[in-house]
Design a binder for these strands. Sequence first.
RNA 1: GGAGAGGUGGCAGAGUGGUCGAAUGCACCGCACUCGAAAUGCGGCAUACCCGCGAGGGUAUCCAGGGUUCGAAUCCCUGCCUCUCCGCCA
Length: 425
Amino acid sequence: MHDIRLIRDDPAAFDAAMARRGLAPLAEAILALDSARRDALTTQQEGLARRNALSKQFGDFKKQGQNPPTDLVAELESLKHNLPQGDVDVAAKTEEIHALLSALPNRPAAEVPEGADEAGNVEVARWGTPRVFDFPPIEHADLGPPLGLDFETGALISGARFTFLRGQMARLHRALGQFMLDRQSGENGYTECNPPLLVKDEAAFGTGQLPKFAEDLFQTTEGRWLIPTAEVSLTNAVQGQILSDAALPLRMTALTPCFRSEAGAAGRDTRGFIRQHQFEKVELVSIARPEDSEAEHERMTAAAESILQALGLPYRRMLLCAGDMGFTARKTYDLEVWLPGQGAYREISSCSNCGDFQARRMNTRYRPEGGKGTEFVHTLNGSGLAVGRTLVAVLENYQQADGSVDVPEALKGYMGGLTLLVPQG
RNA sequence: GGAGAGGUGGCAGAGUGGUCGAAUGCACCGCACUCGAAAUGCGGCAUACCCGCGAGGGUAUCCAGGGUUCGAAUCCCUGCCUCUCCGCCA
């Protein structure tokens, strides 16, 4: 959500920022609405002030046992008749401008590169050396089934984009989640959380899924939304709050299932475990002071990278261009892991600084120490990491010629003695 | 799911139709006293928005939304949430 004052102060800069996202100029229309709303509001407030004053007189007459003069009564009568319409007028204009503003994406940070889509993303770092295979590495979709990655049963009971994990594969999946959560809540200093997976409209609005992206979510019959990421639950944990300066930064992590309808992704990644309706992810969320959010973003990205490094998975860090960033982000790093079976880098984590964009939607503020009043916090979120995609990366990077898969050193303590995944039947 | 109680400022907690944006206590900030601190005294201390160059003025907010009334923290309805008891249940 944008600060309307920012648009009033510099409409051209606002339009320029939206243009980077590929949007047509909007400031003029917004400001016209804003001006109409304020006119209506001022008129209404003058009416209310008049009513309050007259009501006081009315009460004074009554208290002295006198009947209020008829012209006083008449004016009150007319105010009583007219004020509700003024309310409706103001509410309608407020709603109109709110609807418009809440559907606009965040302004990209200055250092975010120009670009319309992923082709404009910039590689800023690369870690690890892809392993040299003495046999042709295969994709996880072919490698996985004999190891317990059961796409058929997933499709049987739930349909496309659902997978059933069995035996050693289920164990490896669990090990990955536990390992990541331990790492983030331990060394990396995030507080482990176990949040609700179903949330109210307000929460989905706060993190930006609503009103624009409802079709990407699953909704229960009684109206709650299944979280598409724990970002929604963790970030909204501070909705409506005024935090103390000393409490910041707030760092939270959670391992949760995530649910996505994948509307609009028809035909993409239909094979394999990359794009599922349900997947697990360790999420990182930080609530930070504005002046610290830049550094916090780097710290968070490093926390996500620490998992890839510990698992020995080569990756690169991409700085997303303006056109490829998510709705709420002002700056985003994607981590892309090397998948030798596909011969490509694939997204496995996305770490975003949302600035005060979500904080405004949630109305989350803090009291700066020594300062006056309150200020919106900055929110950040990142995957640390997506468990399913990490499973894919482990399979493809640690595969052997005979179709077995080595368990990475870092996971051995989580595997109950299992050090090698072996094809069954 | 059934029955009951309740939701007031950072916290606790008064307030049942106008004099209430709201007593009091605690916390916090400033000043005084003090070598300093504590104690004490005095003063201050909600949020958002609108008008105004400013000084300042105004509006709204006592969970939320409706309603009654000239006027609602206070009365009525609905919803949400919390607590207690019962039922069911992992």
